[in-house]
Amino acid sequence: MTLSVHDLTITRGGIPVLEGLNFALTPGKALILRGPNGVGKTTLLRTVAGLQPPMVGRVDSETESIAYAAHSDGLKAMLTVTENLRFWSDIFENKDISRALKDFDLIELQDRLAGTLSAGQKRRLGLARLLVTGRPIWILDEPTVSLDVASVALFADAVRAHLAEGGSALIATHIDLGLEADVFDVGPFRASGKSPDPGGFDEEFL
């Protein structure tokens, strides 16, 4: 269940943003991505999650091992907390949602419509979805946005438990989660504008 990235160049809107990325994520480890806004962290995470093809290089991981959580939580306002979670657990063919409810302190909220939750509560529900996927590699894009201190601690505990069970996590975040994790700064990998591989995207026109 190792995720490894080899010599990766990623593009946003056809323009290379980060290049020459190499890193690996082994079971039980977390990797924190750092870098200024707009450097391409979200693009990198989407590429690793397989939503976007890399321009150069490759991402090696076992198929169907990745759970991806983006800025938006994919919640339906007109469904209850339980129904939202139940839907994703059915999609991922995973029956148990009680642990997800418990770990993210959602039991009291379980019959509320998701539309009536506060921003932080919604975020907790979105993160609880990770548990019902049952997938070992978590790819998280700014997971702590709009969470209060207590909720951040809940989240950090969930990540720790996940790592202890042999899972791994790739997290783009600006705050210190208090996790034992390697930090990977993507800043130095900013694309120089001289692509090593002409022939891709707009480079072909130069």
Binding site: A49, E64, Y68, A70, G74, K76, W88, E93
Partner: peptide
Amino acid sequence: LDWEDGSLDLLATSPL
């Protein structure tokens, strides 16, 4: 609607 709230991204990375 699924595009706006991000469900489509999540569906695309699901086993379905």
